[in-house]
Design a protein around this nucleic acid. Sequence first.
DNA 1: CCAAAAGTGTTTAAAATACACCCATGC
DNA 2: GCATGGGTGTATTTTAAACACTTTTGG
Lengths: 256, 256
Amino acid sequence: MTFEEKLRSLFTLGNQKYLEHLSIDCIIFGFHDNELKVLLVKPRYADEWALPGGFVIKNEPIEDAAARVLKERTGLEDIYLQQFHTFGNPDRSTKKLNTLFLKNTGIKLNASWMFDRFVSIGYYALVEYTKATPQPDIFSDKCEWFRVSTIPKLILDHNQILKKALSHLQLQLNYYPIGYNLLPEKFTMPEIQKLYETILNRKLDRRNFQRKINGTGILKRLNETKQGVAHKAPYLYIFDLAKYRKALQSGLGFDL
Amino acid sequence: MTFEEKLRSLFTLGNQKYLEHLSIDCIIFGFHDNELKVLLVKPRYADEWALPGGFVIKNEPIEDAAARVLKERTGLEDIYLQQFHTFGNPDRSTKKLNTLFLKNTGIKLNASWMFDRFVSIGYYALVEYTKATPQPDIFSDKCEWFRVSTIPKLILDHNQILKKALSHLQLQLNYYPIGYNLLPEKFTMPEIQKLYETILNRKLDRRNFQRKINGTGILKRLNETKQGVAHKAPYLYIFDLAKYRKALQSGLGFDL
DNA sequence: CCAAAAGTGTTTAAAATACACCCATGC
DNA sequence: GCATGGGTGTATTTTAAACACTTTTGG
């Protein structure tokens, strides 16, 4: 199938495969250069960027749909995805965008399920920046990381969605462990602290942070230090996966 | 329109008015006799009870759809509704129930949008038990309050949905004020404490509770005491609505 | 040898918890 | 008059927050 055939098929027959009116938006967070990043796509012919999204296959659990979107945009699997809110204003429609898109692609269509209003279920994921290989979707020509601190105006209500994901994540930090999938396998205490600081957008006390994070038992210190760094070499840590997973389920009650 | 015509129309033409595959479930909590109650409906010809639900009109915000469900089942308006989760397993279908229903109503249909899988957005509300007038929907013959502590087996995943609503509410309790819409206009300190105890399902210390709830500033003590009660008459309180609403937005950070 | 970052404990303040006596009312 | 529930304050424990000096390494 050519690119154009694929597109035409999606616009005309997509509703045979997917649930109409329903979409998934994934907020894919990464952490790099001591900054929190989020993965965005650039729809062709559009001025604004967008959150990666997708549709729900008719017999597919919505969690699987979210995981599918994540995999398609990053290549990553088995990542913890957190549903945080469903967005359903009646003006959530990409009709304009799609019309522009079709016009530029030379496809003529009067109607499509894709012109309708969409209720979108929001999920966020925390992934290891270096392991993700950003891949644009069929509507987009780019897929890139953006610093959360400098997000441009996005399509529709995507800025709001991102904001809500972030504040949900900030709350979540107090109850559930994060970092696995987001940090390299071995990492240092200052690194994980900067991750927390970045997400919370404030400084934390080194000693207090260390005490608390150690108190959760999700970290194991190795008898290695990070090599090739200036100044004193920090210890390397890894996650204790068993305890990490347990804490994901039952929470770990501490405040930062 | 007769009842049967209404029904037939809904099953055959409902998808012209409503978004397909999408429903709303409302967990309507009330508080009475020092117990937390939840409003359930009994679908005709079914063995099990269900959460009150509804559909989303094509040009309607999903929040409005939830408010509509709440109003239709209780008569109540302007109640705070909290979206808490969206449920989307592919086996969420009431096809069996609907088939049984149609069979018993003498309506013959081969297909209907109502036989499909539904993704359901969950909202919960806290309402004043005495002000609600339970009203069955078109599919149901009963609509009644149940004690949260003794909920029977419900249809589909409704038990899980209720459980999730409750645990969401319990967490919410630490961040946002509750009680308005749930308690009578004037209420006593022991009453609101029992409300908290009921939701959290554990005893709280009288004095500590009083200190904390007063610390939030959302209560105003009246120069009246509750009349016609045995023993020492407790003071009456009302909510300071301005502060209450402010706290609803910005949170009030205390733990119980 | 010095600047820059990491390792480590203690002190202080705040918050949560535990706890006991007096008061008013209906029976 | 007594049993029952409501009103009120303090002492204790726990938890969070503030804080400083020593160690290591690269330049």
